[in-house]
Structures are given as C-alpha cells and as structure tokens.
Design a protein around this nucleic acid. Structure first.
Lengths: 197, 197
DNA sequence: GCCCTTAAGCAAACATCTGTGCTTGGGGCG
DNA sequence: CGCCCCAAGCACAGATGTTTGCTTAAGGGC
C-alpha cells in the first residue's frame, strides 16, 4: 500500500461523498450572496465529481429534500415540559432559533419551495409537512392525556406554524424577544403572564 | 404590400407581447404536470421570440413579479366598508378566494420561490411584500382616522397574511366557510367589544 | 488472500438557457 | 403622406447544466 502522495488521486467512499455533499449544500445555502446552488457548484464545493451527485440523487430537489429531512430528523425538540403551554412554547422557540440563522431560513425556504407542481414532488412535500405536523400532534396527544384541551390542529397551523414559515420564507425577522410566548399567548390566551405588546 | 398571408410573419405589438406573455405564464404555472416554466418555454407558448422576453423583463424573477403584481393590482378590494373589522374581513375574503384557484395558489408560490437569496432579489421581494402590506396599511390608516385602534402591522402579518400564504404554498385548503370571519375574529376578538387585549 | 459487486472519477457529448448584433416592421408625429 | 424611433424578430454565439460510456479504486463475501 503506497502512502497516498499529494499528487495521488484518492477516491472518497460513498459515506464520505454523502457527508461532503450535505455539508456543501448547507454551506452554499448559508452564503448570503450566493444564488440558488446548482449541482455542479455543490459538487465542486464538496470536492466530488458532479456525476457522482447526479447519479446518486438524480435531481436538485431530491438532494435538498434529503438534506432537509436529515437535518430536521436531528433536532426534534420534543421535550416534555409538563404543560401544553410549555411544550408549545418550546416548540416555537426551537423554530424561531432555527429561522434566525440564514441556514435554517434557507432550508425551510428550500423545502417549501423546491417542489414544483409535479405529482411526486407533491408527495414529498406532503411528507415533509406531515413530519412537522406529527410533532405537533404528539404535543396535542400528551396534552389530552393530561386532561388539557388543546386547540385543533388547524388553529395551531394558522397561529404558530404559519407565522414561522412566512417569516422564514420572506426573510422577516421575528421580534427580538418574547416571540414564542407572544404567539402561544395569542393561541391559548394571555393568562397571568406579564406580556408586552 | 402583399396582404399578410398565412405564411407571412406578423409582428406582435408591444402590448400584444405583454398580454401574450402574461397569459403564457399563467397557463404554464397552472399546468399541474409542468415544472418551473423557463423563459424559452414561456416565450414559445406565448408565440413570441424569447429574446423579446429577455430584453423586456431581463430575468425570470422580474417577469413573475410583474405578472403577480399586475394580477394582485387588479383585485385590490379596498372598498371602504365603514369599519376596521369589515375592511379586514373583505381583504381576507379576497385572499381566500384567490388561493382557492390553482392559478392563485401557484402565483403566490411562484413569487415566493422565485426570489433566491441574492441581494437584488431581496429588494424585489421586499417590494412585492411592501405592496401587500401597503393595502393593509391603508386599512389601518382609515381605521385610525375613524378613531379605531388597529393592531400593529406585525400582528396582522402573523394572523391574517401568514395563514393565507402558508395554505397557498403548501396547498392546504382553508375551511369551507367562515374562514375570513374566523381569522379576523381571532385578531380583533370575537365579541363586538373589539378593544379587548 | 482472491474475486466480485458497487460506486466514484474522468472525459466528452448533449441539451438547454442566456445574451448580442443586426434587420425590419409598425405606429406616432410633424 | 412620409419620416423616425421603438421594439419585435432572427441568427448565432457563449455559458451553464445534464447525461452517458467507460475505467478503476474500495470494501465485502467466500
């Protein structure tokens, strides 16, 4: 086994390719000046041949969907705080933190918008959305088990998820502080909390 | 001057080009099976030369923004109903009607997705958004002139505009009836004592 | 240790999008 | 009626993205 010289071409393993490409997507999305990253650009950044990307993922949308899914899988903050209000607030706070970073915003933008009207894309989009709603469903079920009476899913969609997504997509920063409490307060009613308007 | 035979090339007037291209964008967006329409595809569908499109609009984003703006301009239902609640309800109802049609949904989706992270695109996006918010601002100003106390713009964004946009983008149908009243009711309070909060 | 399947790398063709110089039709204006 | 300017159309060139055939390294199974 000759030690790999600097001039020696080394071939990445499939797992290395996967990791490098994922990281490259994140990096390029997070770059504020850059436009929509193309597959050749991603491949170059990752240091892999672009044909490897084409053959493995097939399309830009599939690649983005893979990255986003992996990413969201990692941070599902389903900690049980003991109350519906606490769970929802934590959930929103995680979302707010996520959309504060350019990377998070652009990931959401990417997944929300990368799928055109084609049929299979619709399926993928639905799956993404199902995942997001599933975590809310878990929170609702826990609340029901506690004897609380959670609002219907539609209302949570309108009042918690929608503001986060629209702000992420259009790049509108949420208020600096207290935003999770504000949204949840509007949803559940402002109880004894000293809220500012 | 030979009368224009069928084989004779006839040149469209600028206004005809504009109309044909706009219609082509709508048609291609509304086609469920189609992918993101490109400028050559749009031009071909419109029966104009693609260079005409490039020279007049310059970019795909600018074209889409133009179509959407024109479209939204047409149905700006800024009728004065005499009350803040009435004005807002009418505004939401127009939005709901718009996103019930595939064409309306896809237009909103298109304008949201057409702007990448680049700097000038950010400007265009802001302009689009400003237009939408401007009509809300008008409603707020009228309310203030009447002596009513309208909620801040941010709150209207979160509670009226965001649900509409998210439902449009993700293709989630709004409730069959009473949705405008429901959203406005959550914003202003469901009783007629609207100064609660 | 050897073979065999898998997938990365390479090069080249291929398709598509984007932009430019030029010609010419069409409508407004004197 | 005739001139002039604007913009649509055309042909072509350049850039970029996409796909394919082939070679060969890497890792697993026997």
């Amino acid at each position: 086994m000759t030690p790999k010289q600097s001039s020696e071409r080394i071939r990445k393993s499939p797992e290395q390719v996967r990791a490098a490409v994922h990281q490259a997507v994140i990096d390029l999305l997070a770059d504020p000046g850059g436009a929509e990253p193309t597959i050749p650009a991603i491949a170059q950044r990752a240091g892999v041949n672009h044909t490897s990307v084409y053959r493995r993922w097939g399309s830009r949308e599939a690649l983005l969907a893979d990255v986003v899914t992996t990413r969201l899988e990692r941070n599902s903050p389903l900690t049980d705080t003991g109350s519906l209000r606490g769970d929802l607030t934590a959930w929103v706070r995680a979302g707010v933190d996520s959309i504060r970073t350019p990377e998070g915003r652009l990931l959401i933008r990417a997944v929300a918008l990368s799928m055109p009207g084609s049929a299979d894309a619709q399926t993928e989009r639905d799956q993404h959305f199902r995942r997001r709603l599933q975590s809310i469903e878990n929170i609702r079920e826990r609340a029901t088990a506690r004897g609380e009476n959670p609002p219907p899913l539609d209302q949570i969609l309108d009042q918690l998820l929608a503001p986060l997504y629209v702000r992420a997509i259009f790049g509108i920063d949420p208020p600096a502080s207290g935003y999770p409490e504000l949204l949840v307060g509007r949803l559940l009613g402002n109880k004894d909390t000293a809220e500012a308007i």
